[in-house]
């Protein structure tokens, strides 16, 4: 079974790397945004720059989880190749696992440009332990966004998934304080922010990288969001299975 997961991961990785528009956008956009918004305004402040680096890494990782995953899952469902794979002697698991591993791998690569910009052009500092912890937390807090990507991918056509995932992605990033730190946001956004799943995720990343205490409301809401989108993703998966394979 594990060798099959590897085989699927390998072919999906090759596919991603040969047409790397999605991964490139996911990698370059946050790095460019770093250069434009963080370097000139917070570059000299080690703590702010470090926190911003975490935020932009999360922002880029989220785009892979939410936009990248939803588009590839919905495209999979539209290609006759996908039902063909299901006639092979394996259940849906190896392909599914391969898809998730591919997103994670692409995500880990795509945060590198942000790290490089941060190291080159800002005063951000981090210990190796905190960096590792940060990357670990990054992967963990990505779970609700992966589930959101699955939900969108399993319910919508690929054209709709492209649009909807972007529409969901940007406001979530902004409300969660990823592009602009919470303290600089207008009042109503500051009130709203803890209820967004991105805020809880960001608080955990900041906790790992600069050691701030995460807010209770944001953490509880992150857990609530995770449970809700997990239920939605399971529902969407079952509905798709029922339509195409029953």
């Amino acid at each position: 079974m594990s060798s099959l997961v590897l085989a699927h991961t390998r072919y999906l990785m090759i596919e991603q790397l040969r047409v790397p528009i999605g991964p490139l956008a996911g990698a370059l956009f946050p790095a460019i945004a770093m250069l434009a918004f963080v370097v000139p305004f917070a570059g000299k402040d080690p703590v702010a720059a470090t926190a911003a680096t975490g935020s932009f890494m999360l922002f880029g990782a989220m785009s892979n989880a939410l936009i990248g995953l939803s588009i590839s899952v919905s495209q999979d469902r539209e290609q006759p190749w996908n039902p063909y794979l299901r006639t092979l002697p394996a259940g849906p698991f190896p392909h599914f696992a391969g898809r998730i591993l591919t997103v994670l791998a692409v995500m880990l690569v795509s945060v590198i440009p942000v790290l490089l910009v941060s190291a080159q052009f800002t005063e951000a500092t981090i210990t190796p332990v905190r960096l590792l912890l940060g990357v670990g937390v990054l992967v963990a807090v990505l779970v609700p966004f992966l589930l959101m990507g699955l939900f969108i991918g399993f319910t919508l056509s690929s054209k709709a998934a492209i649009a909807v995932s972007q529409i969901v992605f940007f406001p979530l990033g902004i409300v969660g304080g990823l592009l602009l730190p919470p303290q600089f946001m207008p009042d109503f956004l500051q009130t709203l922010s803890p209820y967004a799943p991105t805020r809880g995720a960001a608080e955990l990343v900041w906790w790992a990288t600069i050691g701030t205490r995460p807010g209770t409301v944001a953490l509880v809401m992150l857990a609530v969001w995770t449970v809700v989108v997990a239920a939605a993703a399971v529902w969407a998966y079952r509905r798709d299975e029922g339509r195409r394979f029953s």
């Binding site: 085989a7 072919y11 090759i14 047409v19 190749w81 996908n82 092979l88 002697p89």
Partner: peptide, 19 residues
């Protein structure tokens, strides 16, 4: 529906891997 960006040999490999 064959994956456009894969090579002929790679497609045979991924299918063979199941057997």
């Amino acid at each position: 529906g064959l994956p456009e960006s894969l090579r002929v040999g790679e497609i045979v490999d991924i299918v063979s891997a199941h057997f």
